[in-house]
Nucleic acid binder design. Structure first.
Length: 734
DNA sequence: AGCACGCCGACT
DNA sequence: GTCGGCGTGCTC
């Protein structure tokens, strides 16, 4: 058998291995570059995969290979280093490699469509051409017309632009090209008129300067940029990005889902010029793909985007920034469950460039890495403009009569704030009108038919809405159980708080910000704009209000219900709560208008709360880390969560029992198995859910086990009756 | 995940 | 006699 060339292709399918093919007819080795897309026959249909490598021996012997249909790209979309990172990530997170690549590709490319052109062909006059007099071309009126058009466009015109004046212009252009009167040149469409980035230098304060100078741009290093809200982290990113760009390299800036606001984009564009490519979900598919190509071809020197921007190939990467690194949106919660923050560190290592993890409330994982010296710890202690951290006070609401969840003291403070002409912000982590509807006669409670959850009453008008599965129904005026007409709503959501505030403060402009008021694209920005312009004096909302935006005229922040966080089922609940409190309180105040934070609680003596209030996040985090260490929880150990769900109650358990047996057999004692247990909310959207948690002191113990175990799980009969998934480094347990 | 093959119930 | 239910197996 002669030496045979074989293509190893990552095919999008829920299968963990690659597939081998023969090269397409008439395609030789020189056209087969790893990183191109390949159209291949697969099962009964066709699919678009990515060529990983060329081999001379097939993965499995004794099988006639199918021939690939065609190569879909002239040039590779991924370089070898990109391929390696994605393959590595697929293995680390135990996700089928073909689907990892599908995640990394813009949608059109994923479906096998040709790449959108990034470079357009422009035509312009040569010096010789510009000396010609069009009038002399009496017998070639089309040539004359073209010359006139091009004479007025020194930057050149595309063939499309020309053909809108003169139908079929290509032969005419070719005739002129033979005379050397016109030339063609390629240019990327959006960079046709590059405007120089503002060269103004921005003054950094001492902390910022020290942070910037501490970063070695020449080699890998992970840096925790630890700075309170308003301490100017973005200015540090901008300065570093500028240096990297000036050195001819690319900077990748990741921000949380909600942080990619038009203001932030404008700020980056203003400071870093035209080379900024923005990648986010708001873009249309073609636009998004174009930005992706600009990044991959190195035409964009800065890439600003959310989680998936990390998967973009960047040929000259010189800096990675992960802003608000503690934010949960960096972990994808379905399918390919990668953490963009963690992969950012791996990517930087492989690219030998620095990675900056920025946060006012670093995750305990990152903080521990900084303590242990794996990460450099950069601190910005001063708030820019000398503003102080707003003092935080606890309001004991035990045996206090509340009005829509607000104590008289809080209401009074709001009144004072408004009377002084300042803004007040109230934070409540529940949308809707009321989280519970009950019958006063028989005690019936409105529950979701498909979840183990109560339904939330919305818009007082009476729609019950399950926040877990999205199902809705009208609320009958009569109890479905006993027929009495005394249904009452208990507890408060943002809608009720808004209603009561409107009664208490009829003069105030009130704005509510939650998922319901910001559903439409751009409505959040509109409301935030209104706040900045002082249209509203009373702001209320869910955590949406807590992220990224600073409201300098807010001098009072009230947190209505903080207690769920204290006793959550999840061991990360306290960390979340602390981050939330600090993030919310960071919204307020500035130098000449210090803010104040009031936190309502029924557990004013809770030690962790006391620590946070009196000594701040850093002290809280130290204590939380000590607790984690004592309990051998992450970041002092590593976890993998196996989830299963099915409409049949017994199916997840049956599957997880088998998974447990085999897992224990494979693991040889270095891995702990917890469960299987029902998920915190066992039934959700009509499916029963259960978990099996694995924990080990070393990542390698888990990584060693996973490939075999997952292979075994995929072959299980009981696996066919459930939907299951592996979550490596899980962030949330439900 | 798709998609087909395969072997058992209620219909023209 | 068939249409069609979803259990099972495969995809280079």
């Amino acid at each position: 058998m002669p030496d045979q060339l074989i293509l190893r292709v990552a095919v999008p399918a829920p299968l963990y291995h690659c597939f081998d093919y023969l090269p397409p007819k008439g395609v030789g080795e020189t056209d087969l570059l790893p990183g191109v897309r390949v159209s291949v026959p697969f099962g009964r249909g066709d699919r678009c995969g990515v060529l990983l490598e060329l081999l001379h021996a097939p993965r499995i012997e004794g099988r006639t290979l199918k021939r690939a249909h065609s190569i879909l790209d002239d040039q590779p979309l991924f370089r070898p280093a990109d391929l390696e990172l994605l393959v590595w990530a697929g293995r680390y997170y135990q996700h089928p490699v073909g689907e990892v690549f599908a995640n990394a590709l813009p949608v059109r490319l994923r479906k096998g469509q040709p790449p959108v052109p990034v470079l357009n062909t422009f035509w312009k006059l040569t010096p010789l051409g510009s000396r010609q007099e069009p009038v002399t071309l009496k017998r070639a009126p089309k040539q004359a017309q073209l010359l006139r058009l091009l004479a007025e466009a020194p930057d050149g015109l595309t063939q499309n632009q020309l053909s809108s004046h003169i139908g079929n212009c290509l032969p005419v252009l070719q005739a002129l090209m033979r005379k050397e009167w016109v030339v063609a040149f390629e240019q990327s469409a959006s960079l046709t008129a590059p405007s120089a980035a503002t060269s103004a230098t921005y003054r950094l304060n001492t902390d910022q300067r020290q942070a910037v100078d501490a970063v070695d741009l020449e080699c890998f290093g992970a840096y925790l940029l630890d700075g309170v809200t308003g301490s100017g982290k973005t200015e540090v990113y901008l300065t570093l990005a500028r240096r990297v760009v000036n050195a001819g390299k690319q900077a990748l800036i990741l921000v949380p889902e909600i942080g990619l606001t038009p203001q932030l984009i404008r700020r980056f564009e203003r400071r870093l010029g035209q080379g900024v490519a923005v990648l986010h979900s708001g873009l249309g598919e073609r636009e998004r793909e174009r930005a992706w190509h600009m990044a991959r071809l190195g035409h964009a020197s800065v890439v600003l985007g959310t989680r998936s921007a990390l998967l973009t190939p960047l040929p000259r990467l010189g800096l990675v920034v992960v802003d608000e690194e503690h934010d949960l949106s960096y972990k994808q919660q379905d399918g390919f469950r990668y953490s963009a923050r963690d992969l950012a560190v791996i990517l930087s290592q492989r690219s030998d460039c620095p990675v900056i993890l920025g946060s006012a409330t670093p995750s305990l994982e990152t903080l521990q890495n900084a303590r242990s010296g794996r990460y450099h710890h950069l601190q910005l202690t001063n708030r820019a403009g000398d503003a102080k951290q707003s003092p935080m006070n606890l309001l004991d609401i035990r045996s206090v009569r509340l009005e829509a969840g607000m104590s008289p003291v809080l209401i009074e403070k709001v009144r004072e704030t408004l009377n002084e002409g300042n803004q007040a912000l109230l934070f409540i982590n529940r949308r809707g009108y009321a989280p519970i509807v009950t019958c006063h006669d028989c005690g019936w409670v409105a529950e979701c038919r498909r979840c183990d959850a109560r339904m939330t009453l919305h818009s007082a008008s009476g729609i019950l809405w399950c926040h877990h599965c999205g199902s809705q129904r009208r609320l009958d005026p009569n109890c479905p159980e006993c027929g009495a007409d005394d249904l009452r709503s208990l507890g408060q959501g943002t809608e009720r708080v808004e209603e009561v505030l409107a009664q208490l403060f009829p003069e105030a402009g009130i704005v509510r910000i939650d998922r319901d008021t910001t559903r439409r694209k751009g409505s959040l920005d509109k409301l935030l704009e209104g706040i900045r312009k002082g249209k509203y004096s009373l702001l209320l909302g869910t955590q949406m209000l807590a992220k990224g935006h600073h409201f300098p005229d807010v001098t009072l922040v009230g947190i209505l219900d903080v207690d769920q966080g204290l006793f959550g089922a999840d061991y990360r609940a306290a960390e979340r709560m602390a981050q939330q409190i600090i993030q919310v309180s960071g919204r307020a105040g500035r130098a000449e208008k210090p803010g104040r934070v009031l936190i309502q609680t029924r557990h004013p003596d809770h030690p962790m709360m006391q620590l946070l209030i009196k000594h701040g996040y850093k002290a809280f985090a130290e204590e939380a880390l000590a607790e984690r260490q004592a309990a051998a929880f992450p970041p002092f150990s590593y976890q993998v969560l196996l989830r299963a769900e099915a409409p049949l109650e017994s199916a997840p358990r049956a599957f997880l029992d088998e998974a447990y047996e085999q897992g224990v057999a494979l693991a040889s004692g270095r891995v702990e198995f917890w469960g299987p247990v029902p998920a915190p909310m066992e039934r959700r959207a009509g499916r029963y859910r259960a978990h099996l948690l694995l924990q080990a002191n070393q990542r390698s113990e888990l990584q060693r086990l996973l490939p075999q175990w997952v292979g075994f799980l995929a072959g299980l009969k009981s696996a066919r009756r459930v939907r299951w998934s592996i979550d490596v480094d899980p962030q949330e347990m439900f």
